[in-house]
Design a protein around this nucleic acid. Structure first.
Lengths: 220, 220
DNA sequence: CGTTTGTTGTGAATTCATTCACAATATAAC
DNA sequence: GTTATATTGTGAATGAATTCACAACAAACG
């Protein structure tokens, strides 16, 4: 299963929810394709791979798609997350409204000095030393790294040691285990996704200052 | 120019800075490959495409690489950014330390009620109505969207109308213009990058709950 | 009931990034 | 100065994701 494919499946699902809320019952591959910006043939191929079949003329049943996608994406289990590092980014995430709509819940924050963290978010804040106990007790599997760059690598080690198996990293250093974000020779693999805001902005500056300044033919 | 390629170039550059700070003068393709997690042949291919050549035995000259990469990536110009939406995410970004190291500067924040935004970051906060004037006066080309989902599409329109040509979107709805994040039939193209935290977390849950729970052979 | 229409489903073709493999060659060693 | 060695540079091979193209077919229509 391809990373891009999984991302598309999540996008389909989100879109299908909205269409359903609007009262629709069926969709065509080109509706979905238009909305998420891919070719209709790719939508059909994706569904084909997952054995989601539609009606030869009436398109796909929205409820069916949502139900099957939920299974494929593993959305039956609770989506609970911890945040490690309660600085500005960390606390902003704890109060992030949109998580609620997606069924994602931040269940705890951890910091080296929890006494300095405002508790306004309603999320309990603990000292980072308590992380392992907490994660074991709650069976938490996913966590966010929002610590300064200098602490990121050590934080990752602690999280993996605690039992975390999926990590979203906001530090600007690229965290990896072995070669490509996943341990696969270990019994318990851990997946790491890096969100590197600086890198994204730099990419935009490239597009704006370089790619778009070229002759249209040379560009991109 | 491929998106992944541009990202790799930024990573090379960042790494080269660190190596230089450590006193190194030359690197081999496998040093760079190991460090950023790609094959050495890809590093060589990347440099080959850009006509960055090394010495048949002594590797690549770090200063030369940095200099040339800076040109290719368009880092000569100032990297100034505005933030639209000064809620928790927006203000956290305004105070984000790591931008400084990368030469990125947040030069203003805009909000519908600037009077409610704390000014502690040192970044001036204006009413969103003043954006167009500001952007025109300062020639700003890149901006960050940190408004609620419901406002995101309208905010994008305003930013483009104001003259912004590169957008980093933190709202969880996927913003696009035409089909794929770029207008290319217009005179002034605009590139949009979406950072969708919910999507990333959902992807992690998929990895943790589904992919990694399968038999190792079936997984991924 | 036969015909038209529109959409799915999928094997084949395509495209494109990455890896392979190795000739070319600069440096080091002797 | 000759030989050995390590690394670059790149054309060809590979591999994977996407698009194409069209047969199959269900629904609508007359």
């Amino acid at each position: 299963m391809n990373k891009e494919l999984i991302l598309r499946l999540s996008k389909y699902k989100r879109l299908l929810f909205k269409l359903k809320a609007l009262g629709l019952e069926r969709v065509f591959s080109n509706n979905l394709g238009d909305a998420i910006g891919v070719a209709p043939s790719l939508v059909r191929k994706d569904f084909s791979v997952l054995s989601l079949s539609g009606n030869k003329r009436g398109g796909y049943d929205i409820d069916m798609l949502i139900e099957k996608l939920d299974i494929v994406l593993g959305r039956d289990k609770p989506q609970e997350v911890i945040v490690v590092g309660c600085g500005r980014i960390g606390t902003a995430l704890m109060q992030y409204e949109e998580f609620r709509n997606e069924g994602i819940k931040i269940i705890a924050g951890f910091d080296v000095s929890p006494e300095n963290v405002s508790k306004t978010s309603g999320v309990p804040i603990y000292h980072i030393k308590e992380m392992k106990d907490f994660v074991e007790k709650n069976g938490t599997k996913v966590g966010i790294i929002a610590v300064p760059d200098s602490e990121a690598a050590a934080t990752l080690d602690m999280m993996i040691e605690s039992g975390i198996r999926g990590v979203l990293n906001f530090a600007t250093i690229e965290l990896r285990i072995n070669n490509r974000g996943e341990i696969d020779n270990e019994e318990q693999p851990c997946t790491i996704h890096n969100i590197n805001i600086c890198l994204e902005l730099e990419h935009l500056f490239y597009q704006v200052n370089v790619a778009n300044e070229m002759e249209p033919e040379k560009a991109e």
